[in-house]
Amino acid sequence: MKKWMHVLLSATLLLGVTACGGGGNEDSSAASNGSQQEQQTKEPLKVTLPTWTGYGPLFIAKEKGFFEKHGVDVELSIIEGLAERKQALAGGKLDGMATALDVQTTLASSGVPMEVVWILDDSYGGDGILVKNDINSAADLKGKQVAFEFGSTSHLLLLSALKQAGLTDKDVEMVQMSAGDAGAAFTAGKVDAAVTWEPWLSKGANANGKVLLTTKDLPGIIVDTVGFRKEIVDQRPDEIKAFVAAMADAMNYWKENEQDAVSIMAKGLNIDEKEFTGTASGLKFFNLDENKKSFGTADNKGPIYQSTQNDIDFYLEQKIIDSAPSAEEIINPTFVQGL
């Protein structure tokens, strides 16, 4: 049964200037109170994500007060379905999304301009394809039922695997499901294969199945990022700058306080700590220095631009998108470079 989890985490940010004690005049007191009211009623940055280990650092920034420290209120929500997240973004109900880089490109091409401002991780074994035991290669998927989310990172991974075998997704029986539901369906024996992530890869492998391949076999395909709608970046640059600074602090905190950080992230994602640590081993997380290297500079662009272009080219080739935004339209290095 499909399960949608909507977990809303919000906090009130207090940025008001404290009124001076005796001796202050009424005009300055009124101005101070007006400033407080304006700041307290400012809309938070609304950021959504699915349940995935790679997005855990967002909860460190929230729980440890790093967003508040840098002067931004951030509201996190978990929405499992990609279609639902895209719809909310397109409708202006959300400001940003933690998602794979290729999803940011499909959003941009569908009329929802996004700008990536932070890189969370690169999948290295955390995503993969579950299959029944009689399937031994991607070529064996021909004619089989494969569950995955259309137009998502899972779709990209499947297409990449099939392409190496001389096939396309038209050669398999496609079953539309979110990554988590695909893993659950495979574990229940309802489909022949599923493109999903941990912990479903391990669960499926223990349920009379096996992992055909993972992002260890196809590295560099899945990069998790945080992006915001372009209009939000244009209208609220100071808050985006604060958001990025808070993420840098979150990664430093994780390095220095591993157990507490893991506990915070697991709780935020509503998974147990063992599950979190087990899946985190399949990811390479990016701190500020690694973000700077990946974004590069204006004169020397980093590898994130090529990864973005690869996603654009691939989706165009597969006719999943009709128009091609440029990598430069999607990647915004300004905020990382400014730290």
Rank of each mutant, 00 (worst) to 15 (best):
G151I: 04
G166P: 10
A184I: 13
P237C: 02
V191G: 01
G220Q: 08
T225Y: 00
L156P: 05
K170N: 12
D224N: 10
G151R: 00
R229K: 14
D171A: 11
L159Q: 14
G143Y: 11
S178F: 05
D140V: 03
D181R: 01
K144N: 11
S152A: 09
F150L: 13
S152M: 03
K142Q: 14
A207C: 08
T215A: 03
L159Y: 11
K203G: 09
L159T: 14
G189F: 05
V195N: 00
S178Y: 12
N206Q: 15
A193H: 02
A205L: 08
L158M: 07
A161N: 04
R229Y: 07
T168I: 13
T153S: 11
G166E: 05
L158N: 01
W200R: 03
S154Y: 15
M177A: 11
S202R: 15
S154P: 06
L159M: 14
L212V: 04
D217S: 11
W197P: 02
L213S: 09
S178N: 06
L158K: 02
S178H: 08
E198V: 09
K203C: 07
K203V: 14
V223I: 13
K230H: 09
L156K: 11
F150Y: 15
K230C: 04
V146E: 01
D224S: 04
V223H: 03
E198M: 14
A179W: 00
V191P: 09
E149F: 05
L167C: 03
T196M: 05
F228E: 11
E198G: 15
I222Q: 05
N208V: 09
S152T: 02
P199Q: 03
A182T: 03
S202K: 15
L167N: 03
L167P: 01
D171W: 12
E149P: 09
I232H: 00
N208P: 05
A182P: 02
M174P: 03
M177T: 15
A139C: 00
L162D: 13
K203R: 15
A147P: 04
G220V: 10
K144S: 09
H155D: 06
G220N: 08
F148N: 00
K210Y: 09
V172P: 01
H155W: 15
L162S: 08
N208Y: 07
D181E: 15
D140P: 09
V172T: 12
L158P: 01
L218A: 05
P199M: 00
A161P: 02
E149L: 07
Q235L: 10
A179K: 06
G220M: 07
T214N: 09
G166Y: 07
K216R: 14
N206T: 13
V226E: 03
T168V: 05
A184W: 06
A139E: 06
G209K: 02
D181H: 10
L212C: 05
L162E: 13
E149W: 05
H155P: 06
K210A: 12
P237M: 02
E173T: 12
Q145L: 01
D192E: 08
L201Y: 12
H155F: 10
E149I: 09
K142D: 10
L141R: 11
G151S: 12
D234V: 08
